[in-house]
């Protein structure tokens, strides 16, 4: 589903990604772990072209992200095409980023109506189903400011799901939440994984990575240090850097 080869990303002179290789199979849940500044969030944002990469290739479902290749040359995608590519990849942000002027239900129906051209009535029926699924069936009329952080994040997940994505990206979805609200969000993500969704999750929740992740990737300093089965990487890490990190967070 996701194929990354030798991905490099620079911000000015600061090289944040120094050659990332990664493969995510269909239906797989991959958890990205690592200290702050290790480049894991940046890499996630490169997958749906919120950031452009300087070197290497990322393909999603066989298509190069953000470009089209013809006769060995890359052509930047025009906005209309690039937008279609993004619509197939769902993203959940650390700070939720719900549209503040829209109710929970309107947050969910906005993109399906506007981007996919689905009839508002159908989008609303689907939106209510999704709210039900994340345990917020009765809060459709609430504005984001009237919801707790955990509720907002669950609405954000429902919003991304409304576009029927083939891939879901989670950028530290529980880092901005009070400890007792983390569980509700993780429950929703666990159900999603069980339903067979392909997921890439940047997280600090080691427990979640161990239980739900099919594979764990440990990043540091812009490179992949170690990856493999969660039990192996988390319980018997091979690299000294991984051991040092885990000893601090566990």
């Amino acid at each position: 589903m996701v194929l990354a080869r030798n991905v490099h990303k620079r911000f000015g002179l600061n090289e944040v990604l120094k050659g990332i290789d990664m493969t995510v199979e269909r239906g797989e849940v991959v958890c990205l772990l690592g200290p702050s500044g290790s480049g894991k969030s940046t890499f996630l944002r490169c997958i749906n072209h919120l950031e452009t990469i300087n070197r290497g290739r990322i393909t999603v479902d066989g298509d190069i992200v953000g470009y089209r290749e013809k006769d060995g040359r890359l052509y930047e995608l025009p906005e209309k095409v690039a937008v279609r590519q993004r619509a197939e990849i769902g993203m959940v942000f650390q700070r939720f980023n719900l549209f503040a002027h829209k109710t929970a239900l309107d947050n969910i129906t906005e993109a399906p109506v506007l981007v996919k051209g689905i009839a508002r009535k159908d989008a609303e029926r689907r939106g209510l189903e999704l709210l039900e699924r994340v345990g917020l069936g009765d809060r459709g009329g609430a504005y984001p400011s009237q919801l707790s952080g955990g509720q907002q994040q669950r609405v954000a997940i429902a919003r991304a799901l409304a576009m029927d994505p083939k891939l879901m990206l989670f950028d530290e979805p529980t880092s901005a939440l009070d400890p007792e609200l983390v569980g509700d969000v993780l429950d929703v993500m666990r159900d999603l994984a069980k339903a067979g969704m392909t997921m890439v999750v940047v997280t600090h929740e080691i427990g979640f990575a161990r239980e739900v992740g099919d594979r764990v990737v440990f990043m540091d300093g812009g490179v992949v240090v170690e990856e493999g089965d969660p039990a192996q990487v988390l319980d018997a890490p091979r690299e000294a850097r991984t051991k040092a990190f885990l000893s601090k967070v566990l």
Binding site: L50, E79, K80, E88, M91, R95, V115, M163
Partner: peptide, 25 residues
Amino acid sequence: EGQVEAAKALGMTGANTMRRIVLPQ
């Protein structure tokens, strides 16, 4: 800026993001 990113991630065009998300707020 997060509002724009969320709209982008949902596949909205720049013009739609401006009209539906940024301007009203």
